[in-house]
Design a protein around this nucleic acid. Structure first.
Length: 583
RNA sequence: GCGCUCGUAGCUCAGCUGGAUAGAGCAACGGACUUCUAAUCCGUAGGUCGCAGGUUCGAAUCCUGCCGAGCGCGCCA
């Protein structure tokens, strides 16, 4: 239950009834009326800007409008006090018992407490990773993988019907390179001395087993043949092997996508031509010559007529080519078909997660979707910035030439899935991120992963101790929800509960903004409040969770921290991090 | 030259899509704690939100122009 949303609705209802009663003028636009938790706790629990938003429309003084609304708000059962403050804010303070009783709500719903229905089961497609199947995943893919996966889970939690998808670029020239590289390893597996891997081919060791597998499958059947005789088979074979590798890599991060969509299939079944036709029908295709790019001119520039899409009509800088000058399809043409395909599958809501170096590509793909759907379908592209790998503050050196770059698996093996996932989500996607192997595994307050997980584990350790102090108590969710919650009266306890009540709102805003990092920040904040409360118990014995001679108050506090653990667990669940019961 | 992303405390970053006196964590400074509920705690200081205009009751947030950083810029993928 999102109490802010409920109050927002109540406030709008109140305004509507005031209009009906003739106290406010008709036809007011209530769009911008909000109800949110004020930054400053002294401003109460919920604040609304209603009066200020209406000033201009109603042509009234904000405090007069506020006074009318306050009179009605005061009638609400759960409201303790209402006051007008500052330039016209209305600050609402809730009754303590209402806040305390939310603990019961949380325990009742458990890790589903924050679930929302704002998504209204609308279909959303989240496409992420989509790395070329030419080798194992490396650091660069890692962030997008975690981001996309967490975003998908978040949207699911917020009530969307989510499909997680991977686009396999198995059609381009890089697959030919892969095939040739694999063929070399095949010869090697047959006992030939292949020497140094030539420039321009993939040198990585990961192709050795592919060569062996080919040798097993084909024997020496491909050995004496010309490239054009084996390349189709080898391409397919090697790409499949690489996708297996990719899937395994993703599994180490706990990622399993629903659909793996092959670019080749678009070529094979005519979807690309269909995409072109669809754009043509809208009159958006023409044959023309593009202006040379400003600034540095490519050496081999010459004018060539191409099949172009009028993406400039949708805000792109230049029109984009769908066919190369030799008539072959561009990569973009496949992307037109792919996004059209997603649209045809009912996804008017599409999200692509890309590396920041693809930023220049965003507008043209969005243009396609806007054009084909007449604006009904939208594509949000989330660009993930670089991850800088560090070890004790020093950049980790990577040599790409040897093919021995740092892989996703290397990182997961060293620090573990949970750490990778959490840390990757401690920054906005469009800010670059430092990943320091030394810091992320540190067991201290400075390390957010540890701090949040420790909060969760701490609850379980308290539960164990409580069971020893009071062997007859029922510490199940159900049992604890029967505790006398009115005993949770200390200001810092109420503050913790208020932060917990914010959870549903955090979910919704993070989901709408497509920003899973907000979850990490919230969890850190919540955990630090919990730890602070715990620490208070050092000085003030009466604030400890377990009070040996007071079973009632112990039960109420156990209920509170159990509820806390539920929210941590559900938040970590969205991030894909294990909520540990002991550390 | 153009486009995209960004610019917030000494450092690393949040800032709930326009709200109130801009917040955390490191680092700095000042205290507390010596085994208690292991993996510290409390407090202080630190800011022209890159700069200059504009819109608004109200701007870190929106619009314009500069400055600076990263990425990209006809057929690669």
């Amino acid at each position: 239950m999102n109490i802010f949303k409920e109050f927002q609705k109540s406030i709008k209802d109140i305004i509507a009834s005031l209009i009906e009663a003739g106290k406010l003028p008709p036809d007011l636009d209530l769009q911008n009326v909000t109800a949110e938790a004020p930054r400053d706790a002294s401003h109460g629990d919920i604040a609304t800007n209603a009066a200020m938003v209406l000033v201009k429309q109603a042509k009234m003084n904000p405090r007069d409008i506020a006074a009318l609304i306050v009179l009605e708000l005061e009638k609400i059962e759960t409201v303790e006090t209402v006051e007008i403050a500052g330039p016209g804010f209305i600050n609402i303070r809730l009754k303590a018992d209402f806040i305390q009783n939310q603990i019961g709500e949380i325990l009742k719903h458990g890790i589903d407490y924050g679930r929302s229905e704002i998504g209204a089961m609308e279909k959303v497609n989240v496409e992420y990773v989509s790395a070329n199947p030419t080798g194992p995943l490396h650091v660069g893919h890692c962030r997008g993988a975690v981001f996309g996966d967490a975003l998908a889970t978040l949207l699911d939690y917020a009530g969307y019907d989510v499909t997680k998808e991977y686009y396999i670029n198995d059609a381009g020239g890089q697959i030919d390179v892969l095939a040739r590289s694999a063929y070399l390893r095949y010869l090697e597996a047959l006992g030939e001395d292949i020497g140094e891997i030539p420039e321009g081919l993939y040198p990585g060791d990961y192709l050795v087993p592919v060569g062996k597998a080919m040798a097993e499958k084909y024997g020496d059947a491909l050995k004496e043949k010309d490239e054009n005789e084996w390349i189709d088979d080898v391409r397919k074979f090697a790409a499949n092997q690489m996708m297996e590798l990719v899937r395994d890599d993703l599994k180490t991060l706990g990622i399993e996508q629903d659909i793996f969509f092959s670019e080749t299939s678009l070529h094979d079944n005519g979807d690309i031509q269909a995409g072109l036709d669809a754009l043509m029908e809208k009159g958006l295709i023409y044959t023309g010559v593009l202006e040379p790019p400003k600034g540095k001119l490519p050496d081999d520039w010459e004018e060539r007529p191409q099949t172009l899409f009028k993406s400039t009509l949708f805000g792109d800088d230049v029109d984009r080519a769908l066919k190369k000058s030799d008539g072959a399809w561009t990569y973009f043409a496949a992307d037109v078909a792919y996004h059209k395909n997603k649209m045809d599958r009912g996804f008017n809501n599409q999200i692509d997660v890309w590396g920041a170096d693809h930023g220049g590509y965003v507008k043209r793909v969005q243009s396609v979707l806007t054009a084909l759907s007449d604006g009904k379908a939208a594509l949000d592209v989330r660009l993930c910035q670089m991850v800088k790998l560090l070890r004790d503050g020093e950049p980790v050196k990577m040599s790409k030439r040897s093919g021995n770059f740092i892989t996703l698996r290397d990182i997961v093996d060293e620090v573990g899935k949970d750490v990778v996932r959490f840390i990757m989500l401690t920054r906005k996607n469009d800010a670059s991120l430092d990943f320091d192997f030394a810091k992320v595994t540190e067991q201290s307050k400075d390390n957010p992963v540890f701090y949040v997980q420790y909060g969760h584990a701490r609850v379980y350790s308290v539960m164990d101790k409580a069971q020893i102090a009071f062997p007859d108590i029922d510490i199940s969710d159900d049992g604890l929800s029967k505790a006398d919650l009115s005993l949770l009266s200390d200001e810092s306890e109420l503050q913790l509960i208020k932060t917990m009540i914010n959870w549903p709102r955090v979910i919704e805003s993070a989901a709408i903004a497509h920003e899973p990092h907000r979850i990490s920040y919230y969890l850190y904040d919540l955990a630090s409040q919990f730890h602070a409360l715990w620490n208070k118990g050092n000085d003030r014995l009466d604030l400890r969770f377990i009070i040996d001679d007071n079973k009632e108050i112990t039960l109420s506090r156990l209920a509170m921290i159990k509820a806390f653990s539920k929210i941590i667990a559900s938040g970590l669940g969205i991030l894909g991090v294990e909520p540990l019961k002991e550390m």
